[in-house]
Amino acid sequence: MTRALAVLALFSALAVPVLALASTTALAAAETVAVPGSRPAFVSVSQAAGLLTGHDDTGAMIGKVALDRAPAVPVVTADGGRAYVSQPELGTIAVVDLATWTRGETLTVGGQPFGLALTRDGRLLVADWSGNRLVEIRLADGAIRAVPVGHAPSAVVLSADEAFAYTVDRESDAVSVVDLAALQVTETIDVGRAPFAAALAPDGRRLFVANVQSADLSVIDLRFAREIARVPIGGMPYGVAIDPASGRVAVTDQEGGRLVFVESRSLALGGVATVGDYAEGVAALSGGVFAVANWFSDSLTLVDPGGSEPVRHVPVPEGPRMLAVVPQ
């Protein structure tokens, strides 16, 4: 399964012709805005605009960088220094230096790379939507391995000890458990219809899975590798994030433009906030605040932990989809 990873460009003159070939819609790659010395609290991907943007904890934009075409999902390194962003239409991953807000190399994966996760020892896990596989890239040397999973994997989440990865297989209505040492699927866990996103509980014991078509949240007990509960959310659940301090689970309902809260232990509903149109990605910021990307509204909504009212709406470039917290 091992094959060489094609690194198209390494901060070199090669980057210019490669980018020019890769896309006709890309903005000038040099277009960046950055406040020196400031680290974003989270990053957001604007798919139609082709941008990665950085935001402080009030949502204000403090940096941006142009990517190639239709970027989808970001993931950030544990030191907060770099972001990797999937570009499913191109079969590639774009790398961004978050300290300087400059564009780095492009990793070619093939297929339709979508959901991403990063291990602490520097392996990038990629859910290949149309390839029905999980791809592992060792970033130090580009070594690449892959394993078939279910149909149309849209997200990948690591176990607390990083021994396992869980892929959310949208068109199989299942989660695949992948043993990362052997790179083998060891279990397949049935969930609701059209699962799209997942988040790990702070104690690492439960995985919460947002099911778009069955309008609910699957709760998986990872010790037994089975679904133990299904929490009704309503509408079309597309994103899920968990506040590590309180354990509060937040689920976006894309159809209703809502953020629905669930208590992670009791699984009781804990309130609803109105956000923007076609809410998709959600991230847990510090202080229990959640940020939501509203794809149709071209905005982010920040929701306060205490109440159901949004604390702030922030306009962003066209088509925001997915968010990632930047470790501080």
């Binding site: 798919q47 989808a72 499913p88 339709q112 939507w129 949208r170 149709f296």
Partner: peptide
């Protein structure tokens, strides 16, 4: 009906 690609249009 539920099979679609990764990039939505508006």
């Amino acid at each position: 009906a539920e099979a679609h690609g990764p990039t939505r249009q508006k």
